[in-house]
């Protein structure tokens, strides 16, 4: 195997270190958000303690949909500009998005069971979210299966754009279809319909998850860069 270019590898190493450092800070912020949610936020009157999942499920959904939207945007820009950094970013964002989706798709049923009486229902919001997860698992599988870097970047960019198209539909499903899933309480045209203490905790959790997204994508970008340098040491 050819040794990767020294300067590029140094940059990859610095990015992974910086990204993992940010991720550790974000995990501490996440722990703080958990303490805030469980100890310093009122229990919701109708749902009781089950509603505390809200402070995990919504930030995870936010991070996952942001991650997949950015994959689509970076993919479209890659097809236009052919800059390999956009492909590396899309790869990193897709993997982190799949991880956040896993959190969203496990906390959702844990919340649904005591409130809806069922773990899962095949309504539009849940089904499309599951399909989005499968699209990006497929995206990662496609990347692993194609060995030529240019072909891999082009093929996966097309799939990344397909995923982006699904994101606004997922947001609008609760308006377009009859569904058990509640309508947005924050991301809607009118003011947030949440008491201040709950909104504050949600904002702290969203900030922690967003910071975690930034840290993980930075680290994953560095990992992708190191792998690319091993594939082709002359790569930009």
């Amino acid at each position: 195997m050819t040794e990767p270019a020294g300067a590029g590898l140094g940059q990859a190493r610095a990015l992974t270190r910086r990204g993992l450092g940010i991720s550790v800070v974000a995990l501490v912020a996440f722990a703080g958000a958990c303490v805030l949610a469980l100890g310093f936020t009122p229990v919701e009157a109708r749902q009781g303690l089950a509603q505390k999942i809200f402070y995990l499920h919504v930030p995870a959904a936010w991070s996952a949909l942001m991650a997949f939207s950015l994959v689509g945007i970076a993919s479209a820009l890659y097809l236009w500009l052919h800059d390999p950094r956009l492909d590396l970013f899309a790869e990193a964002s897709a993997e982190v998005g799949v991880m956040f989706s896993a959190v969203m798709l496990t906390t959702g049923p844990i919340w649904a069971k005591p409130i809806w009486g069922t773990w899962w229902t095949w309504d539009a919001r849940l089904t499309l979210t599951l399909f989005l997860f499968f699209i990006f698992v497929g995206y990662l599988a496609l990347r692993a299966a194609v060995h030529d870097p240019d072909e891999r970047a082009r093929f996966s960019a097309v799939l990344g754009i397909m995923g982006l198209v699904l994101v606004p539909f997922i947001h609008l499903t609760v308006y377009l279809f009859r569904t058990l899933h509640p309508q947005p309480v924050v991301l809607k045209p009118s003011a947030p319909s949440l008491p201040w203490e709950m909104l504050r905790t949600l904002m702290v959790a969203v900030a922690a998850f967003t910071l975690l997204y930034v840290g993980l994508v930075t680290a994953r970008y560095g990992l992708g860069l190191a792998r690319r340098l091993r594939e082709s040491p002359d790569a930009p």
């Binding site: 990859a12 190493r13 190191a226």
Partner: peptide, 30 residues
């Protein structure tokens, strides 16, 4: 409710540790 917090923490920690190990291997960092 507790299960949701446990599962989320486990998923996040497993991913971060896995990423750290992969990055260490790929970059030759010690």
């Amino acid at each position: 409710m507790v299960a949701g917090y446990v599962v989320t923490t486990v998923i996040l920690l497993v991913y971060v540790v896995g990423l750290w190990r992969r990055a260490k291997q790929a970059t030759g960092d010690r």
